[in-house]
């Protein structure tokens, strides 16, 4: 729900401005701190909240249907590969701490650099295969599925 920024915590670093998919976190020219310029285009995606190094951004449920007095806070830690949430309801009866992994491997190191992969053969180019296939795509580790291999036939088009 729409974000807001605590005046005393923000130092104007601009991480939130850099990440917001909706382009609505901007730096206020007078205070040199960030704020949400267009709350009705905020998706409460929490991208900015997760990105703020000072935890200066919080979310207050949309005024038109969410009563005041709740809190959903988050800490995302790329080094440890986890994200931690705390949900507190308005009446205090729900108070949940939830933890989830965000990656199983050191960040970004296991994404291949395709420029360093061997050049695909002419045969592969002419085939239907993509990079790293047919690995994983069928039970017998054979070739790609085709209509024939799946016992299917081209049928007449229905055209009314």
């Amino acid at each position: 729900m729409p974000t807001f920024v605590y005046m005393t915590r923000c130092d104007g670093c601009g991480h939130c401005v850099d990440i917001c998919p909706s382009d609505i976190m901007h730096i206020d020219p007078t205070y040199r701190r960030a704020y949400n310029i267009e709350p009705n285009m905020c998706w409460e995606c929490y991208s900015c909240v997760k990105a703020c190094p000072h935890h200066a951004i919080d979310v207050r449920g949309y005024a038109d249907f969410a009563p005041l007095g709740h809190s959903v806070r988050v800490i995302r830690d790329e080094e440890k590969g986890v994200i931690a949430w705390r949900i507190k309801s308005r009446n205090g009866e729900t108070d949940l701490n939830l933890l989830a992994p965000i990656t199983t491997k050191p960040w970004g190191q296991h994404v291949p650099q395709l420029a360093n992969q061997p050049e695909p053969s002419q045969e592969m180019r002419a085939s239907q295969l993509l990079y790293n296939e047919p690995k994983y795509i069928r039970m017998d580790d054979g070739d790609i599925h085709t209509l024939e291999s799946n016992g299917l036939e081209m049928k007449e088009g229905v055209y009314h």
């Binding site: 729900m1 998706w43 409460e44 995606c45 929490y46 979310v59 449920g61 249907f65 969410a66 009563p67 005041l68 007095g69 709740h70 809190s71 959903v72 988050v74 994200i83 949430w85 949900i87 507190k88 309801s89 308005r90 009446n91 009866e93 729900t94 949940l96 939830l98 989830a100």
Partner: peptide, 22 residues
């Protein structure tokens, strides 16, 4: 049930927290 929201639609968790829906 809660993780499902936090992982893709955080706003729903916010709304339930705001409206005391358990």
């Amino acid at each position: 049930g809660w993780h499902n929201f936090l992982g893709m639609t955080v706003g729903q968790a916010v709304l339930w927290a705001a409206t005391d829906v358990n």
